[in-house]
Each structure stands twice: as C-alpha cells, then as structure tokens.
C-alpha cells in the first residue's frame, strides 16, 4: 500500500513547488524588465479567489484557471500604474499591493467558503504513471505538466525573441533602450500584465488544483518565496525549475521526516530555501553583478 520514499517526496515536491514555480516565472519576467513586485502574495491571492469563485459558478476548472490568470494580470496593472506611470517606489508599492490583494480577496471569497468543486484533477499518463521513482511525475494535474513547457516558453520569450531582447534592454538600461527606439513604459506594462497572468495561475493552482478550497491568506508566504526563488535562479527561468523542485522538496522532505518520526526540527528545515538563496548569491558574488538586471529597483526617469 505504501508508496516508496522517493516517489512520495517527488509527489510532495511537485505539489508544494508548483504554485511558487508559476509565481516565480512571472516574477522573473518583471524583474528582467527592471521591476520588483513584492506584492506577488496579493496577486496570487486574487488569482486563487477568482479562480475558485469562477469554478464554483461555472463548474469548469478551465474557466477557473482562465479567470484566475486574468484577475492576476489585471491586478498587476495597479502596480504598473504606480511604479511605471507614477514612478512610485517599487518595494513600497509592492507591499501596498499585497495588503490590497489580501483585503479584496478576503471580501470576494467570503461567500464561497465551504463550496465544493471538482477542480483540476490529475491526468494519468498510461504506461508512465506507474513507473518506479518517476511515476508521480505522470499522475499530476494539467498545470504541473505545463510547468516545464511554461518555463521553456518564458526562457524562449526572454532570450530568443525581439520582444525579450527589448524587455531585457529596458531592464538593463532604460535610457539606452529608449534611445534604441523602444518604449520602456509600454514594455514594463506588458511585462507586469504577463507576470500577473502567471501569478494568477499560481494562485489558481493552489485553490482549485491542490487544495480545492478557498481560505483567507491561503498563500501563506508563497509569494515571497517566489521572489526568493527568482534571486536563487539568478534571474533565469530554467533555473527557477530547479529552485522550485528544491524548495518543494525541502517542504515535502520535512513532512516526510515527521511522518516517519525522524528527529529533525521542521523550523530549521524550513529555513533552507532562504539560506540556499543567500548561499547561491554569495557563491556567485564575484560574477557579473549576480546577473541581476542592472536597473532593477531603479525608476526609469525618462529621457525626454
């Protein structure tokens, strides 16, 4: 009956890693465009509540994911308005966005608490679902299957398209990008909307994929972990996948250890994702400014 340790940890890693993976994929896009969104937590909450409510209303999980993504994208435009149009401080604006998302999502979600939905269900891939060790990879829901393609898509978009080039140019040096004929504000708006879509999907994965319920503050800090993951990945979408697996693995391992009665402090294990991120930055400290987009955190002053 019982599932082998490795498979169980893998399954747990997928479960706990997926929402932060999607959120971090969104965050890497905006950070590459020179914006930090500390309000990811609020974006995820908006995605989670909207997708749950729409799934309750329509009965369709697909529509739920769509609604969650849209809500996340639109919600991020508030941040765009603040930090791009009004050139407000990014970190403070992000934190304000988090408070706003927490409040609004709690109001919207209250009527739906206790509702039952089918949500996103696991799709078994015949022949692969029962492979030893790797089986759990092929018993996941659609969002888990799409995670690696999504990471590849973000990578392709950022590093292999003209749009990605212009986006990174804006993140590195907005004045030069402007001189080269790009419109930094327009690109940052696009980046924030796209990132919001990913943040919304992350919330949807949590509410209608993993737990199939809505609760206030159900993200429980995952938005901040996603920001840490982007740093850990040194602003590279494909490395985010490893970071998410590592983070999810740490959570899963911690719970597994407990369930097996191993005497490991869950609190100390929980510090791992943060210390690892810091450790990676320290190790790469000699490198080219940790590959961080140069203008990150700076507000583009305009070159008119």
């Amino acid at each position: 009956m019982s599932v082998p340790f490795v498979e169980s940890v893998l399954l747990g890693a997928i479960l706990s890693g997926m929402p932060v993976l999607y959120a971090a994929l969104g965050e890497v896009i905006v950070e590459r465009a020179g914006v930090v969104n500390l309000g990811l937590e609020g974006v995820m909450l908006m995605g989670a509540v909207t997708s749950f409510a729409s799934t309750v209303r329509t009965g369709s999980a697909a529509l739920g994911v769509l609604a969650g993504a849209t809500a996340g994208g639109l919600f991020n435009l508030i941040l765009a308005l603040l930090v791009v149009t009004r050139q407000a401080n990014q970190l403070a604006s992000g934190l304000a966005l988090m408070f706003f998302g927490a409040g609004v999502s709690a109001l919207l979600g209250a009527p739906y608490i206790g509702s039952r939905i089918a949500g996103l269900n696991p799709l078994q891939i015949p022949g692969l679902a029962h492979l030893p060790y790797l089986g759990p990879l092929f018993r996941s829901d659609i969002l888990a299957y799409l995670a690696i393609p999504a990471a590849a898509l973000v990578w392709w978009g950022l590093f292999r398209t003209r749009w990605g080039l212009s986006l990174r140019a804006v993140g590195e040096n907005p004045a030069a990008a402007y001189a080269a004929g790009y419109s930094p504000p327009a690109i940052q708006y696009q980046a924030l909307f796209l990132a919001g879509l990913f943040g919304g999907i992350a919330g949807a994965d949590l509410s209608i994929g993993i737990v199939k319920t809505w609760a206030e503050w159900m993200t429980a800090g995952r938005g901040f972990i996603a920001v840490a993951l982007v740093i850990f990945s040194r602003w590279h979408p494909l490395r985010i996948v490893w970071g998410a697996v590592l983070f999810g693995g740490a959570v899963a391992l911690q719970l597994q250890f407990q369930a097996r009665g191993a005497p490991v402090s869950p609190f100390l294990l929980d510090t791992l994702p943060y210390l690892l991120s810091l450790g990676v930055l320290l190790v790469w400290a000699g490198g080219r400014r940790h590959a961080a987009p140069a203008s990150l955190g700076r507000v583009f002053e305009g070159t008119k």
Partner: peptide, 19 residues
Amino acid sequence: PGSVVNILMALMLFVVLAR
C-alpha cells in the same frame, strides 16, 4: 469584515505613493 482594514491601508498607500 476585518479585511476592510487592509483595503483602507492599501488605498492610503496607493494615493501617497502615486503622488
């Protein structure tokens, strides 16, 4: 509901940040 406090605080911050 208690969540309204978060909304009030956020609105306040939005307005000040967007000045």
